[in-house]
């Protein structure tokens, strides 16, 4: 039974999260401030941390940095709307994913599941199926409805980055660093162009994508199974 540590100063939110998580088979610990949260994480390391960015005693980003010095398990950020820049910053500081308050419990559970799955999966199966797509990372091929889809090498690199991080949001700068290298992090037009091309090749309706979703102001998320 995975244990989740909730660090949030709002007791109502903590209570609701606890109920939701217990009902879905998770154990929980709760902390109302940064200090308490860090201590709890150190004493009983949880499998995942839900961290609110607006804590009373310490800036959420610095809590995140302190936790990431030693904590390797997933950290999910809880943030308020129009805090996209904070979210991007948090993701760059090592958070695994984020949820904008107010969020739906279903969304929360899906993110937790996918973060835990990513953290536990060791070597991925080289051949993976997502709906009508089959991605073979070893042979660098994509099949749609069993037919081979021609991808350029950059397109395939991007696709396998998405597949490796299935369910997780990837920031523009992360994608740029991984695919094009550290010198390209400001060239945000690259992911836009290549994601557009990938969508045209792999989505049934590129205008209403079901696999590669746009996260406004943050980046992209590959959703394999809906």
């Amino acid at each position: 039974m995975p244990c989740i540590l909730i660090i949030d100063d709002e007791s109502a939110i903590r209570k609701l999260l606890e109920i939701t998580l217990h009902a879905n088979g998770y154990k929980t610990q709760s902390a109302a401030n940064a200090q308490e949260g860090i201590t709890m994480a150190a004493m009983h390391p949880p499998d995942l941390i839900l961290l609110d960015l607006g804590l009373p005693d310490e800036d959420g980003q610095s809590v995140l940095i302190r936790l990431r010095e030693w904590f390797r398990q997933p950290i999910l950020i809880l943030s308020v709307r129009s805090g996209e820049e904070d979210v991007v910053q948090a993701l760059d500081h090592g958070a695994n994913d984020y949820l904008i308050k107010p969020f739906r419990p279903g969304e929360l559970l899906a993110r937790i599941r996918s973060a835990l799955r990513l953290a536990q999966s060791g070597d991925q199966d080289p051949v993976q199926e997502f709906g009508n797509l089959t991605v073979d990372v070893a042979n660098r091929t994509l099949r749609k409805n069993n037919e081979l889809v021609k991808l350029t090498s950059t397109e395939f690199a991007l696709l396998s980055l998405f597949v490796r991080n299935e369910g997780k949001v990837l920031t523009h700068s992360f994608i740029l660093r991984e695919i094009w290298g550290p010198g390209y992090v400001t060239q945000t037009q690259y992911p836009r162009v290549f994601v557009g091309q990938l969508r045209k090749k792999m989505e049934d309706e590129p205008d209403q994508p079901r696999f590669i979703l746009t996260e406004s102001g943050v980046g992209y998320r590959f959703v394999g199974n809906t």
Partner: peptide, 14 residues
């Protein structure tokens, strides 16, 4: 403003 290269179609679809 956070000026950035945008795909207008993607923006409207989002």
């Amino acid at each position: 403003l956070k000026w950035d290269w945008c795909d207008v179609g993607e923006l409207i679809n989002t």
